[in-house]
Computed example of a mutant assay.
Amino acid sequence: MMWPSVALLAFVTLQRLGELVLARRNTAALLARGAREVAPEHYPAMVALHAGCIIGLWLLAPGRSVGLFWFLVFMGLQALRLWVLATLKERWTTRIIILPGAPLVTSGPYRFLRHPNYAIVVGEIAALPLAFGLPLYALVFSLLNAFVLLIRMRAENTALESAMILK
């Protein structure tokens, strides 16, 4: 039966495309308010990684059964993703954007983790391929994601620390 795998892939694809639209709108609004982007050089690699992961799943996963456990893990992560989006509101973006004078967000999931969205993405990149029974795929993209996240988190932490010093 092909439709469950295709439905899940379509959901993820449409979700990511919607997030890109939201991120672009939020980024433009933040920049118009005087924000600045930090460390944009890693962004193309991050986009390529995420796009490559989804494209690869479209090539490998249609027609595969969807494992209930990993599907539920993935959907639980989607609820957490919505919590992050609702907490950050117009400050959520896919780029590292620093708005001078804006306080650090410390509510919602940010009470528990400094970078909850990154923790969610780590889980998603593993859980989605595992839902399709693709453990090697999950491992490869998890390792690639770890490399990109290491670069991104260093840049973001440095930017946040300098923004706090400049306040």
Rank of each mutant, 00 (worst) to 15 (best):
M2Q: 14
P4M: 04
V6W: 10
V6G: 11
A10R: 02
V12A: 05
T13P: 14
Q15L: 12
R16K: 01
R16H: 00
L17W: 11
G18V: 06
L22Q: 02
A23S: 06
A23W: 06
R24D: 04
R25E: 01
R25K: 02
A28P: 09
A28H: 09
L30I: 06
L30G: 10
L30Y: 02
A32F: 07
R33F: 13
G34K: 10
E37A: 10
V38W: 06
A39T: 14
P40M: 04
P44V: 10
M46L: 07
M46Q: 07
V47N: 05
V47M: 09
L49A: 14
L49E: 12
H50G: 03
H50Y: 03
A51W: 10
G52H: 02
G52V: 02
C53D: 05
C53Y: 07
I55K: 00
G56F: 00
L57R: 01
W58T: 00
W58K: 01
L59N: 03
L60Q: 06
P62V: 01
P62Y: 00
G63C: 05
R64I: 09
R64C: 11
R64Q: 10
V66G: 05
L68M: 10
F69A: 06
W70A: 05
W70P: 05
W70D: 03
F71Q: 00
F71P: 00
L72M: 10
L72T: 10
L72Y: 07
V73M: 08
G76Y: 03
L77E: 15
Q78H: 11
W83T: 07
L85P: 08
A86G: 15
A86R: 15
A86V: 14
L88N: 09
L88W: 04
E90L: 06
T93P: 06
T93K: 08
T94G: 05
R95K: 11
R95P: 07
R95M: 11
I97S: 05
I97V: 07
I98H: 03
L99E: 12
G101E: 08
G101H: 08
G101I: 09
A102F: 08
A102D: 12
G108P: 08
G108C: 11
R111T: 14
L113R: 15
L113T: 14
R114K: 12
H115P: 09
H115F: 11
P116R: 00
P116K: 01
Y118I: 02
A119N: 15
A119T: 15
I120F: 06
V121P: 03
G123I: 04
E124W: 02
E124C: 03
E124L: 03
A126C: 13
A127T: 07
P129C: 10
L130D: 00
A131Y: 08
F132A: 01
L134A: 04
P135T: 10
Y137E: 04
Y137H: 01
Y137N: 02
Y137C: 02
L139D: 10
V140G: 15
F141K: 01
F141W: 08
F141D: 02
F141Q: 03
F141L: 04
S142Q: 14
L143E: 09
L150M: 13
R152H: 08
R154Q: 12
R154S: 10
A155S: 15
N157F: 11
T158M: 03
T158K: 04
L160I: 11
L160R: 09
L160T: 08
L160P: 02
A163S: 05
M164C: 02
I165Q: 14
